[in-house]
Design a binder for these strands. Structure first.
Lengths: 248, 248
DNA sequence: TCGATATTGATTATTTTTGAACAAATTAAA
DNA sequence: TTTAATTTGTTCAAAAATAATCAATATCGA
């Protein structure tokens, strides 16, 4: 049993189980513990794994930034229901826009096995989908650390080069008076996404329906459908005005 | 039993079993161990197998060629020295291009505290710098999972919108005959970077100097400076031709 | 046939790999 | 916090594999 073979076995096991134990590994391969330890140290030096006391852990080069996960973690059950419904709207071969909202981010887990093309300005979405079946197109431009996403004029022009079949977007609020955003950057890119997709879905939980925020940037007719867990009366109005409402 | 015949047998066995053992092989073919060893070394030199202690393993064409982590981890000490020297070339307020090479990636750790703007097509670079003092500009376009980076026409056009003060790039090889790349995608984007920066630095360890790879994509005059740990004679020639050589 | 070249094998020195022993460092438990 | 157990790094030694050198054999072209 040479080093290369052991290296293969170790990395394979790491990939499957996420971690390995020196004692256990030594027994399995019928080889001394110190040899395994040396192997792990070498692999760790090569950046192929993280060394721990008594073993090693898998290294994932592209981990989702923690601050983003935390934000996305609010209202999880509602958001997951919404995203599952959104995923149902996506078909094989679709080209979809995804923006940098926390709800939209959670959509990733439901579309990893779909053969579609995703065009996005959200780096966490890129991380989440970067080794999935999804083909990715990244929107270029200035990176906004706060939103973990790309915004600005260049980004808008990038979007304008494409035509997507569907767009899945977030917003800070929606009411009969229009769509609301927290910043001009988000407003601009949302408009660009909507303008260049055939059908625009707004993903928002009940806290956003009827809410009117800092900046009104468009009429509610900008979007074609709302996917939400809300039962608000405002929805009935929007529905009457021609907006498709998909409840979850 | 001549070499050709043994080569056939060895490669066939590798294909079936995945690995061969010198002792075992010598016995089977009734031939001395050193001959088998010589055979394996020659085949390894041709890239037909991986040499191990006491034998050889099959090369997996799907693995390795661009596996980012694997590459980034090779020759770490040399690369870190090169990157430290590269970081010394960067001043407050600079606007720099960084490509998706494994050496360039290691530059990140040395520039996190600099107030500069980085324009890059490499997602690992984005991840590494996303909460640092560095202001990021992400190059848009189709994401290539193998290289963890964005390439293609759209990316090139994106680059053309900017003018950087310095570009830090990698290459698969450089010699008096020109610059060499592993793929057209990499070649194109390297040229775009170089064309739109005032000064272009090539970061490469000694394994790349004098090497001529798969695709020649430009004359060596495309770059202005080389940062390397190599002492090769080829460097003296490049220096005489006007390329700045920064040794580490 | 002869000589030049390439291939193979034997021998020896060097390097690499592996394991054992023990002190130092780290983690877990009291 | 102190103590006990575990893990780790270091040093050394044995075994295995390798490279280097040289001699023997085979192959090829003239």
């Amino acid at each position: 049993m040479n080093f290369q073979r052991r290296k293969q076995i170790i990395l394979e096991k790491l990939n499957i189980k996420g971690e390995v134990d020196i004692k256990q590994m030594a027994q399995e391969l019928d080889i001394s513990e110190i040899t395994i330890r040396r192997d792990l140290n070498q692999l760790a030096g090569d950046g192929l794994l993280y060394r721990t006391h008594g073993g090693a852990m898998k290294v994932d080069p592209l981990q989702v930034p923690h601050d983003f996960i935390n934000k996305a973690a609010k209202n999880v059950e509602a958001k997951d229901k919404i995203c599952r419904a959104a995923a149902n709207q996506i078909n094989h071969g679709d080209i979809i826009f995804m923006d940098c909202g926390s709800t939209v981010f959670r959509l990733c887990q439901f579309i990893k096995n779909k053969k579609i093309k995703v065009i996005t300005n959200s780096i966490p979405v890129v991380y989440e989908l970067h080794n999935s079946l999804v083909s990715l197109n990244i929107i270029g431009g200035e990176f906004d650390a706060e939103r973990q996403a790309v915004h600005g004029r260049i980004a808008n022009e990038h979007i304008a080069r494409y035509k997507a079949s569907k767009a899945f977007l977030g917003a800070d609020g929606i009411s009969r008076n229009g769509l609301f955003a927290n910043s001009e950057l988000e407003a601009d890119i949302t408009q660009a996404f909507a303008a260049h997709s055939e059908k625009t879905f707004l993903l928002c939980d009940d806290s956003k329906i009827g809410k009117e925020g800092y900046l009104k940037f468009a009429e509610f007719t900008l979007i074609n459908a709302i996917i939400t867990n809300s039962k608000s009366d405002e929805l009935a109005y929007l529905k009457k005005q021609g907006v498709e409402v998909i409840g979850v």
